[in-house]
Structures are given as C-alpha cells and as structure tokens.
Design a protein around this nucleic acid. Structure first.
Length: 302
DNA sequence: CAGGCGTGGGG
DNA sequence: TCCCCAAGCCT
C-alpha cells in the first residue's frame, strides 16, 4: 500500500466501514429468532425485550411462543388477572417483570388504543420499560434511529473503540456520546446496526472467550490491537445466593405456580424453614403485588 | 446510585 | 463443585 498519498492517519475506524462490516456479518450469521420473523408484531417485540432482560434466549423462546399464542394482542393480556401473567411467566426469573408487562398491556389499552406506542418517550413511560427497552422496541419494531445500549453493544464498542475488555459498571456520558457518534445517520441503517452489534456481542464478542477469529471487526479492534489487556476497572460485588430473600421468594412463589388456585398460608411453611425470613418474604411479595392474601387465611396469585 | 430482584446452564 | 452469569429496571 502506498502510504505517501494517504491522508493523515486517523486512529479511529471509519464509522461507515464498521457499519458495512457489521451489516454484512449480520446478514450471514443472525439467529432465526421468533421475535425477528417478518410477521412479528411490535407487541411481540416488546414482550421479547421484557423477557430477555437478564434471561438467556434459549429459555425465553418457548415461553414467548406460548405467551403470544395465548395473548396475541396487548388487550388479550390486559383482560386477564395479573396472576395469569405471573403463572405464564413460569421460571424465567424476576417475576415482577410479568407484573409490569401486564400493567404495560393495560396502559397500552387505556392510553394508546391497544397499539404499542412507537415513540421512545411513550415507550419509556410504560411500566418495566427503561432506556434500553424503549430504544430497542422503537428501533427493532418501528425501524427508528436510536442508541440501543445493552450489555452486548457496550462490550463491543468498548473493545473496538476504546481498547478495553469490559465497560464500566454504569453507562457514562462519554460512553453514550461515543455510541451516538457511531450511529448511522438514517433510520434504516441505524436500526440494522443496533441489532447487528448486539448480535455480534451475543455470538462472537462474548464476555468470556470471545471468538476474535470469527469477528468482522477484528482487524480494526483496539482491544485486540492492544493485546487483549484484562479488565482493570472496579469489580462488581459477586452476588450471594444461598439463603437470600431472593431464593426464599422464589421458593414461595413456586408453591403458588405449582397449584391452580389459592393455598392455605400454612402451605408455604414447607417451602422455607426460617420462619422469620419466610414471613418477611411473604410480606414483600404481598407488597410487590406478586401475592395476595385472601379470606380464610389463604394466599394466591393476584 | 448502590443494592435488590430469579433462574438454570455452562466452564 | 462452585462461580459466572444473560438483551435491565426500579427505588
């Protein structure tokens, strides 16, 4: 290559080049996920995004299929008691998401005529929908241009553009600015870029053991060029599990999911030995609305 | 804003 | 076995 006529070297890769590489890679390697099919509705996309918050694709897929079969439109879910959503949620984890999705369906019916709203601000106002999910639905379901910053996108951009292994625990202003600078200008390309970078992070540029040999951005990746330096930022405290309220709440709710209707409060005793903790968790589940107390000293799903 | 909130699979 | 998660949100 003749460098004598090349322009001054820009250490940063050309955004358009990144876009083309990611779009081409996605066209060849994207997974055929049900919520990406051409017949998927905005409601289907929204449901998938809520379910995928902290839960792997493999476990979401079958529940999503059944959910959409049962409640193909927001109004179908909104007409049900919230407990039916909690029951159908099964073992996806974080069941408060089921409650919020049900509440979102009701808000969609009451405030948006039963149609999933298309603007970021309207989506953000729905229960259970934060910055990421609002941007994702607006982008994936409605083809709009938004900065979609999930853990996958953050990791890819951090590696390729900043040369670090992992992003900081919380999104910084500089990180968001960087993502914005690299967003394609037009809606269509920006939406394709968002889903493409996410997929690249999920399949190739993974948190552990990334497959740089299969990465379309390998030869422009700052992290790879730097020799894959290890993460040196603040360490997020490892989450304990055994004996926590989270485990206790899960056990308690599992009793209700396993039966059709309400159960005597006494039926929860076998689910957790520590009586104090059990009562505290029952109280918190009641407070969250995941559990309701009924007459005759019984408890049930809402 | 740090901490709470489920679950089951893989290294 | 034990540890680390996996497309965050809310307070």
């Amino acid at each position: 290559m003749d460098l004598s006529t090349a322009p001054a070297e820009d250490p940063r890769p050309d955004p358009t080049d990144l876009h083309l590489r990611v779009l081409a890679w996605y066209a060849d390697h994207a997974r055929d996920l049900p919520w990406r099919r051409s017949d998927a509705t905005p409601w289907g996309v929204l449901v998938s995004e809520i379910m995928l918050q902290q839960t792997p694709v493999a476990r979401v897929a079958p529940v999503w299929e059944e959910w959409l079969r049962t409640w193909p439109r927001p109004a179908d879910l909104a007409a049900e008691p919230a407990g039916e959503a909690v029951r159908a949620w099964g073992r996806l984890g974080y069941p408060r998401r089921a409650l919020r999705l049900h509440a979102a369906a009701q808000a969609i019916v009451e405030q948006h005529g039963g149609e999933v709203p298309s603007t970021y601000d309207e989506l953000l106002a729905l229960p259970g929908i934060g910055d990421y999910t609002a941007a994702a639905v607006a982008s994936f379901a409605y083809g709009q241009r938004h900065v979609v910053l999930d853990t996958n996108v953050r990791r890819v951009l951090t590696r390729v553009l900043r040369g670090a292994e992992l992003p900081s625990p919380a999104v910084t202003r500089a990180e968001r600015d960087l993502a914005t600078e690299h967003l394609p200008d037009d809606d269509r390309t920006a939406a394709a870029w968002a889903v493409g970078v996410m997929e690249l992070g999920a399949l190739v540029c993974t948190a552990s053991r990334p497959s740089c040999g299969r990465c379309p951005l390998a030869d422009t990746c700052a992290w790879r060029a730097a020799g894959h330096p290890s993460y040196d930022g603040p360490v997020r405290r490892a989450q304990t599990w055994a004996g926590t309220d989270r485990q206790c709440r899960g056990r308690l709710l599992d009793v209700l999911r396993a039966t059709d209707g309400p159960v005597p409060a006494q039926a929860l005793v076998g689910a957790w030995d520590d009586a104090d903790q059990r009562e505290r968790c029952v109280a918190s589940l009641l407070d969250d609305g995941l559990l309701v107390r009924l007459e005759g000293d019984r408890v049930g799903l809402p």
